[in-house]
Design a protein around this nucleic acid. Structure first.
Lengths: 334, 334
DNA sequence: TATTCGTGTGGAACCGGTTCCTTTCCTGCC
DNA sequence: GGCAGGAAAGGAACCGGTTCCACACGAATA
């Protein structure tokens, strides 16, 4: 591998001039710029990123901390972040995080401070006060996706509103027995956004004076999770709700499949609404609240770059809109 | 942020000694080692990774190139790679790649040579001869997952065998009209493994003298893809096959849902078998061929590390086993 | 007693870039 | 003709680590 000294020697100039010629900063005559460029080409020279970042203090790398990407939302979000970063010539260092593991500790204590990332994107993470302090002390821009904490930029969907809108849709259709699929008795099991959705569901019920009928079924936010919970919920013919809100589309689809197997017609006997507008929602004709995680990824990068380029610019919070998409999994109560 | 010079000054020793004390290499008396450790603690010192890698030539970073993680297989694989790398204290730099984009060119020409990765894991990528040459010239260990190319280690599933076993299972059950869901008329649309699966299907038919009945339905390897293809395939009551092989479980499940909607009973009227043992397979009682992408991720890292630590060790190829898991989506032909 | 050897430590070079500062040269203006 | 100022280029310092080498010291060996 050739170094800039090799390039300089070949072009007959000093390292300083070669560096200026290649970066385009500072005075270099057109003819030598060309000579240096040719020399670099011939040697297939590519700057050593560690050397560059040591000299400049910028790593051109963004650290991304997120839960396992096995849910559609996260994989889409990651894709969005990836696209934007690649376009801006930033590298993406990925850290998976399992809630409550000691890996988390190591991450915040050693890894993040050691790698001098130009910025950090934290997805669905509610950092502890101590962790937040460590992050802020490092003075590096931080954008969080999902939870919002004072002092850093954030992009979030209004999960409360999303679930509220979904629930209101059912109420408007005349339903008075509406269950929620995808809560959890153990709040640690619930990601931040999911907890907010439970709240939105409860809010809508309360606003309609229906708080007494609230029923929250424990379920992981996955298709099998929704399936299992719905089997239980719908098994009792008598006490069965006439409508369901899924914590996410996966859970809602799982519930829909369970209903079909139990011979319960959707939407005539049971209305179902989800949240996300998952790629499968259309195929199941699922009424849902549309989110665009990919665009949220783009937005997160935009906010981060804003802070990297203008460290003194104020922190921003983007709340992306949620729109009801009515398909045919919901109908008026008979 | 404090540097090793600060630590050395505080402990009253030279930079050299401080470095040795912290890394544990070379002679340092126990008492000074302790003093240095204390000083580092007090200053919350963490080594600057760019400086370290410039000095040592190792970056403690592995580059991972993979398709978008929107398929279960890839997200599981990524999780496996992530776990193993984190445990070994390596960073993971992620690059998404869309087939045939010019991003790919930039990746191989500039990004990969510039970042001095200690190793590279390429997933589902068939590098061109030129790309391969660039990678090898950089002398960095390369492990590919999926495709296998001479001169680098690889971990792959035997996709041909997997689809063959799946097809043979149906043949043994007496089926003689077996279609494949998830081919593509445009081979560029097909990832490497998917193309192999088509081949395995054809092989099994040929071995049973059934090559004449081969029918391959174009479909993206997703649930909606399988659904759409199956709707078309099963729409014609007369010419409809009695069994289907899905290119992956997602496609197979999509087909299963299509069958249900069309009122075709599974497995009595239609047998379906998939490949992967996706997390949803159990819920749909899908007979399938089990893969363990997460373990493949672990294995890829193991192979890579082997090459990083012992550059002269021979290249290895691990082919992970596939086992038929019989559930209740397949039955004998009536 | 002189030599060797194993420890412990510091100075300085080095990794490969970037950038500050200085010098030289040339053009334009008073 | 003298001087200011801008363009072009090189020398050297610097970023923050690691490591080679030299040196000092005490104990063991000849």
């Amino acid at each position: 591998m050739s170094t800039i000294a090799d390039v300089a020697a070949r072009a007959g100039v000093s390292k300083a001039t070669a560096s200026r010629a290649l970066s385009g900063r500072g005075y270099v005559s057109e003819s030598t710029r060309q000579r240096v460029a040719d020399a670099a080409d011939e040697l297939a020279y590519v700057a050593h990123s560690s050397a560059t970042s040591l000299a400049t203090g910028r790593t051109q790398t963004v650290g991304v901390i997120m839960p396992p990407v096995d849910r559609w939302y996260f994989s889409e979000l990651l894709a969005g972040i990836q696209e934007s970063l690649f376009a801006l010539d930033y590298e993406l260092a990925l850290y998976g995080i399992r809630e409550g593991s000691e890996t988390r500790e190591r991450l915040f204590d050693t890894v993040l401070p050691g790698r001098r990332f130009d910025g950090i994107i934290a997805v669905g993470i509610q950092p502890s006060a101590q962790e937040l302090e460590r992050l802020h002390r490092s003075e590096r821009p931080l954008v969080s996706v999902g939870p919002y904490s004072e002092g850093s930029s954030a992009v979030s969907i209004d999960d409360v509103a999303a679930a509220r809108i979904a629930t209101e849709h059912l109420i408007e259709l005349g339903h008075t027995d509406i269950a929620f699929v995808g809560g959890s008795s153990d709040p640690d099991d619930l990601s931040f956004g999911d907890a907010q959705r439970v709240e939105g569901y409860l809010e809508a019920l309360a606003a309609a004076g229906l708080e007494a009928i609230a029923r929250i079924a424990d379920a992981r936010p996955t298709m099998p999770g929704g399936y299992a919970a719905a089997v239980e919920l719908l098994g009792d013919r008598r006490g069965r709700p006439t409508a369901l809100v899924g914590v996410c589309d996966e859970a809602a689809i799982g519930a829909m499949i369970a209903a079909r197997r139990l011979g319960i017609a959707v939407p005539t006997e049971l209305s179902i609404v989800g949240v996300d507008d998952h790629q499968h929602a259309e195929m199941f004709a699922l009424t849902t609240i549309k989110q665009s995680p990919r665009e949220q990824g783009h937005e997160a990068v935009r906010l981060l770059r804003q802070q990297i380029d203008h460290p003194d610019s104020p922190r921003e919070r983007t709340v992306t809109a949620s729109a009801l998409v009515v398909r045919s999994s919901t109908a008026g109560r008979r």
